[in-house]
C-alpha cells in the first residue's frame, strides 16, 4: 500500500464525517448528495444568482466521471506530488511544511474554505499560493516557488484537497470588506474590446451554450482545477487571465492584488459549494 492510498482512506472517512456534521449543522448548504454529485445551494446573501451551482454541474458527463474517480482523476499526480513535498525538508532553516503543521489532514482542513485572507503585515489579501510561498521564504528560508511550477500547483492542490467536501465559507469582515468591494467592482465592470463583464457570461447566461462551451457560474470551489485543455492543473489567477483575454482585455499578473480581490469576491459568491479540489474541467 502506497502512503497516498492510506491518506485517501482516511480522507474518505473524514469526508463522511464532515458530510454528517454538515447535514446536522448547515441548512443553507446541500453539500454532497448521496451519489457524490453536487447540488444547487441557496445563496446566503442576495446577489445576482438565486441558485448556486458548481462548475461540475455544467461539465460533460465524461469530465464529471474523471473527477469522481479517485484513481483516474488526472489531478492525482499533483495531489501525490504535494503529499510528498509536504514532508520534504528544504531551505536554510532545514524545515518541511510538516515541521510546523504536522498532519495536513488535520492542520490544513478547512483552509480552502476561507482563503484568500487579509494579511496584516502587507495590509492586503493573500491567497493560498502566496501563503505557501510566505511559509517557504519566512519559515523555511527557502526560495519561493514560481506561479506555474509543478511544486506550487501540487502543494496548492494538496492543501485545498484537505477540505474536500467542506462548504466554501468566506466571511466578510471589517478587514476584508474593502477588498471584497474592489473585487465586486471588477466583476461587474465591462472590459476589453468585446466589452463584457464576468457577470455577462457567468451570471446572466450560465447554463447556455456559447458556441460549443456551456457557461458555468464561474465558481472557484475546485481550484487548482485540472483542465483537459491545459493537460495540468491551473490556478484561479490563470483562469481569470484566460477569461480576461477572451474578451480582448489586458490581463493582470498572476498574484496581482486585482486578482486577489476578485478571487475573494468570486469565492464568496460560491459560499456553500463543496470544495472539489482537484476538480476536472474542459
Amino acid at each position: 500500500m502506497t502512503p497516498i492510498s492510506g491518506i485517501k482512506m482516511m480522507k474518505k472517512m473524514i469526508k463522511l464525517t464532515v458530510g454528517v456534521l454538515l447535514l446536522a449543522g448547515f441548512s443553507t448548504s446541500a453539500v454532497l448528495a448521496a451519489d457524490g454529485k453536487s447540488e444547487a445551494v441557496k445563496p446566503a446573501a442576495e446577489f445576482g444568482l438565486d441558485e448556486i451551482w458548481s462548475g461540475y454541474h455544467f461539465a460533460k458527463k465524461e469530465t464529471q466521471a474523471l473527477q469522481d474517480d479517485d484513481f483516474d482523476n488526472p489531478g492525482n499526480l499533483w495531489l501525490e506530488e504535494g503529499a510528498a513535498l509536504w514532508s520534504k525538508v528544504d531551505g536554510d532553516a532545514k524545515k518541511s511544511c510538516q515541521s510546523c503543521h504536522n498532519d495536513a489532514s488535520k492542520s490544513m482542513k478547512g483552509v480552502a474554505t476561507r482563503y484568500p485572507v487579509y494579511y496584516a503585515p502587507r495590509k492586503k489579501l493573500i491567497n493560498i499560493e502566496q501563503r505557501i510561498n510566505l511559509c517557504r521564504t519566512e519559515q523555511m528560508k527557502a526560495k519561493p516557488w514560481k506561479w506555474k511550477s509543478k511544486q506550487l500547483l501540487a502543494m496548492a492542490v494538496y492543501v485545498n484537497n484537505q477540505s474536500k467536501g467542506m462548504p466554501v465559507n468566506i466571511r466578510i469582515t471589517a478587514e476584508n470588506k474593502p477588498f471584497w468591494e474592489k473585487g465586486k467592482a471588477f466583476y461587474y465592470k465591462r472590459r476589453g474590446q468585446l466589452d463584457m463583464s464576468c457577470a455577462h457570461c457567468h451570471e446572466k447566461y450560465y447554463g447556455k451554450h456559447i458556441r460549443s462551451n456551456v457557461l458555468s457560474q464561474g465558481h472557484i470551489n475546485g481550484f487548482p482545477t485540472y483542465r483537459l485543455k491545459w493537460q495540468k492543473p491551473g490556478s484561479v489567477h490563470r483562469r481569470f487571465k484566460g477569461c480576461n483575454k477572451q474578451v480582448r482585455a489586458k490581463p493582470y499578473g498572476l498574484g496581482s492584488d486585482e486578482y486577489n480581490n476578485l478571487e475573494l469576491y468570486v469565492k464568496w459568491r460560491g459560499n456553500g459549494l463543496p470544495v472539489e479540489t482537484p476538480a476536472v474541467r474542459n
Binding site: R190, R191, G192, Q193, D195, H200, Y205, R248, A249, K250
Partner: peptide, 17 residues
C-alpha cells in the same frame, strides 16, 4: 447587452494593446 459593438473604437476599459 452582452453583444459587442462591432464598429466602435472608444469607451473601453483595459483593452489589449
Amino acid at each position: 447587452t452582452i453583444m459587442p459593438s462591432f464598429y466602435r473604437n472608444t469607451g473601453f476599459t483595459r483593452i489589449k494593446g
